[in-house]
Structures are given as C-alpha cells and as structure tokens.
C-alpha cells in the first residue's frame, strides 16, 4: 500500500543543513497497524505528515496504492487523499464554529456526496460511536475524550483505507486513552483499516502489530 524510498527532509539553517528525516525506506501493507515511536524531534510527526500528504519531503519518492504521489497531478493527489486517508490529531483540531454533527459531515461536503447519503453516513457513525446525543453540541461543550471520539469519527466518515493518528491520546487521561486504543484495534481488525499512529507511550504502542523506532530521523532496525 505504501512504499517510501530514500525519503530525506531538511531545513536550511544558515549554512547548515538540519536533517529531520534521513534515508527513510519503508513499505507498509494494507491492514497493518503500526506504532511509530521515538524521542521528541526524531521526525515522527514529519514522517506521518509526509505519509498523510500534508507535507512534502525534500527528496525521495512515495508510492501510495500503486500511484507515485509526487508525479501525479495535484487534483488526482487530492482525490487520492480525500478518498483514502483520515487524520486524527493530539489537539483534536475540531472546528470550533461547527457542531459535532457538522464537524463529522465536513469531509463528505468536500467529496460532493449528496445530502441524503451524507445524512445516512453521519447518522450511522454517530450511532456506532455512541454520540448521537451529542450531535448538536459544539466542541467546547465536550470533554477531551469525547472530542477525540468526534475527531476519530470525522476521520473515518469517508471510509478511508488509511488512518493516521498523531499522538491521539496525548491530551487524554489513561482511561480515555485506553478506550481510544481499543477503538483503533477494533477498527483495524473489523474494518480492515490500515492505521499508523505516532505515540510516546509503550503501552499504547503495544496495541499496534508492528513498532517502528525513529532516532534522529532514521529508522532504528
């Protein structure tokens, strides 16, 4: 599903080149559940963002679902992204001005899905995540755990093949964190969604089927 080859990412700091990622080669099969670990500044989030097409490497190639991400047209890449990738953030990143329902609905709006179908999809996921009662509330009216639940629901609404999570439990207490991890496990096993998560916690990392360790921009073997 994902093939990263010779991925480099650097900043120019004066005359020095500061490397964030160095020579990353990585292949990920469909259905995988990978935890990326490493100390602060090791390039975890950057790697995740590159996989998620939110960021671009300075050098290297990236194939996603047999397509070369950096040679296809912007529009195709956008379609590829919209239909296949969902994102979950540590800070949830819900839109404050929208209700729970509207937040979850937004990705569908950008995919031009018809109203009736949209309503059915949102109703379905609200039901699945057990947050029907919260659908008209605004993000500030929810607890952190609930907000993250909405964030995950929003990431999954368009039925992506890949879910990317950047420290999804970082702002949550351990009980809430466990619940989210259980949810991830279930999604991975039951729906076959490929998951890549970045985490600091050994315990959470253990939910994954495979762990990748990053140190100074390199994958530790």
């Amino acid at each position: 599903m994902i093939q990263l080859e010779k991925i480099y990412k650097w900043h120019n700091n004066g005359n020095n080149r500061v490397f964030i990622l160095k020579d990353i080669n990585l292949t990920i099969e469909e259905g995988a559940f990978i935890s990326v670990m490493g100390p602060s500044g090791s390039g975890k989030s950057t790697l995740l963002n590159i996989i998620g097409m939110l960021d671009e490497p300075s050098e290297g190639s990236y194939r996603f679902l047999e397509q070369d991400v950096y040679t296809i047209k912007e529009k195709q890449r956008s379609e590829l992204y919209k239909q296949n990738i969902g994102f979950v953030f540590q800070a949830y990143h819900l839109i404050d001005e929208l209700t729970v329902y509207e937040n979850i609905e937004t990705p569908l709006l950008y995919q031009n899905i018809k109203t009736a179908e949209r309503q059915a999809m949102v109703a379905d996921i609200l039901d699945r995540f057990n947050i029907v009662g919260k659908k008209d509330l605004f993000p500030v009216q929810l607890s952190g755990g609930q907000q993250q639940l909405v964030g995950i629901a929003r990431a999954l609404i368009a039925k992506p093949k890949l879910l990317l999570a950047d420290e999804p439990t970082g702002n949550l207490n351990s009980k809430q964190g466990e619940e989210i991890m259980e949810l991830f496990k279930k999604i991975n096993e039951e729906d076959g969604v490929t998951i890549i998560q970045v985490t600091h916690s050994e315990k959470n990392a253990a939910y994954g089927k495979q762990i990748i360790n990053l140190l100074d921009g390199r994958i530790e073997k």
């Binding site: 998620g52 919209k82 937004t106 368009a158």
Partner: peptide, 16 residues
C-alpha cells in the same frame, strides 16, 4: 489559520 489547516486535512481544496 488553524481552521484552514483542518479543512485542508479534511479534504478541502483551495477553491472551496
């Protein structure tokens, strides 16, 4: 700006 970022992550293109 943050909202713009989120919307982009959720699949918004520049035009929208």
């Amino acid at each position: 700006l943050k909202e713009v970022g989120i919307r982009k992550v959720l699949g918004a293109n520049r035009l929208s």
